[in-house]
């Protein structure tokens, strides 16, 4: 009888699942936070109170006040405005990097999982080798080799480094699907491989891919922030959160904590919001 109850939950339609999702508390909280940052990223000038480079030399390193909600940094710039403006960089870079990784990874995973054989073997070896080096380290190596940090390079590097993970997840899902008899049934009506892959298998792997995308997006935020904190992610002087923390954190020993804490909390809040979303998706799609 337990089988039957679980079977009933498995047979939920997509619309039902979305309805459940909308009632999920973690999802609502995550989506709200993310929506705020995405809004800030697009309409940053509306939310910010000062220009990102505006400096008030009268009040350098002043603590949070009504005038400067999050205080000012050592150059007298408004921390609040810089945090708001900084959202755009991290969101755009992380999103594009994830998109790249997900696209390449999904294509490789689909092909490897369906074709199997030698192509699959060679590809998996290479991907395994790439993932043997921690993300941050391989990114640092690339930045050193190229000689300078830039957002385009960061996007490419993170995108490439994410490829193995996405490919592996998608491949596993495709391997499972291609065992199912609907694939044999498609072959038995003379479907071409491309049709089977994209029209038959892909729709069934899509939930897995969506969840993987959100999980990777979380990691991308993590990686971009860390790289820029280490001074290896973005052009020098960029108003993004990681750089802000890197530029100001030594001041916390002089108890000037605000220019460091607020961008740190911003990173934490966006990372957590994406995690809450992917966690809710995972639960609702029962992956």
């Amino acid at each position: 009888m337990t089988d039957e109850t679980s079977k009933q939950t498995k047979q939920m339609e997509l619309s039902e699942r979305l309805a459940v999702l909308k009632k999920n508390k973690a999802f609502i909280i995550g989506a709200s936070i993310l929506a705020f940052w995405v809004f800030s990223a697009i309409f940053g000038k509306l939310v910010a109170r000062y220009d990102q480079d505006f400096a008030d030399y009268e009040s350098i390193s002043s603590s949070p006040s009504l005038k400067y909600w999050f205080g000012t940094d050592s150059s007298g710039r408004d921390v609040y405005s810089r945090v708001i403006i900084g959202s755009r960089i991290i969101i755009v870079i992380s999103f594009l990097a994830t998109l790249l990784g997900a696209f390449v990874g999904a294509s490789l995973g689909l092909t490897a999982g369906y074709l199997k054989g030698r192509f699959d073997m060679v590809l998996m070896r290479i991907l395994e080798a790439i993932s043997a080096i921690p993300v941050i380290i391989i990114a640092l190596l690339a930045v050193a080799a190229i000689g300078r940090a830039s957002s385009v390079i960061t996007i490419l590097i993170i995108g490439i480094i994410f490829t193995p993970n996405v490919a592996r997840t998608v491949r596993a899902a495709v391997l499972g699907e291609s065992e199912l008899e609907y694939v044999a049934a498609a072959k038995l009506r003379t479907e071409k491989t491309a049709h089977i892959l994209f029209r038959e298998v892909l729709p069934n792997v899509l939930p897995t891919l969506i969840v993987e995308f959100t999980v990777r997006l979380g990691y991308a935020i993590f990686a971009v922030a860390t790289l820029s904190f280490l001074g290896a992610g973005l052009e020098a002087g960029s108003p993004d959160w990681g750089t802000q923390v890197a530029d100001t954190w030594s001041l916390i020993f002089s108890e000037i904590w605000w220019p460091t804490l607020f961008p740190s909390l911003a990173i934490a809040s966006i990372a957590v919001s994406i995690n809450l979303i992917s966690d809710a998706l995972l639960e609702v799609f029962e992956l």
């Binding site: 008899e181 044999a184 049934a185 498609a186 072959k187 038995l188 729709p203």
Partner: peptide, 27 residues
Amino acid sequence: LNRRDVQDIGGIQIVFQNPDQALNRRH
């Protein structure tokens, strides 16, 4: 299969044991 023509393929078809696996659940 890939060397048989449409008529031969359509001429021999199958009903599988488990329709949950044999019918694409997204279609």
